[in-house]
Simulated scan of single mutants.
Amino acid sequence: MIRHLVLFKLNEGVDRDDPRVIDGVRAFEKLGEQIPELASWECAWNITDRPIAYDYAINCTVADLDALVRYLEHPAHQAGVALWQEFSTWVIADYEI
Results as ranks from 00 to 15, higher is better:
24 G>Q: 03
62 V>M: 07
31 L>K: 03
47 I>K: 00
71 Y>C: 08
7 L>D: 09
20 R>P: 02
64 D>S: 03
50 R>K: 11
13 G>D: 12
84 W>K: 03
8 F>G: 10
71 Y>V: 00
4 H>E: 12
47 I>W: 01
38 L>T: 10
24 G>W: 08
38 L>R: 11
11 N>A: 15
61 T>Q: 03
17 D>Q: 13
58 I>R: 01
55 D>L: 07
30 K>P: 02
13 G>Q: 13
54 Y>H: 15
80 G>W: 07
27 A>C: 15
42 E>F: 09
25 V>Y: 01
22 I>P: 07
48 T>R: 12
62 V>P: 10
1 M>I: 12
65 L>E: 14
8 F>V: 15
63 A>C: 01
34 Q>S: 12
48 T>W: 11
84 W>I: 06
56 Y>K: 09
78 Q>L: 08
83 L>Q: 05
65 L>F: 10
60 C>K: 04
72 L>V: 01
37 E>W: 09
63 A>Y: 01
92 I>Y: 07
52 I>G: 06
82 A>D: 06
40 S>I: 04
80 G>P: 05
92 I>D: 02
40 S>N: 09
17 D>K: 13
83 L>N: 07
96 E>M: 11
34 Q>G: 08
78 Q>N: 03
78 Q>G: 06
52 I>Y: 02
10 L>I: 09
40 S>G: 05
61 T>I: 02
62 V>H: 07
82 A>R: 02
61 T>M: 05
91 V>R: 14
60 C>E: 04
49 D>L: 03
37 E>L: 05
12 E>T: 15
64 D>C: 06
77 H>E: 12
62 V>A: 03
56 Y>T: 02
19 P>G: 13
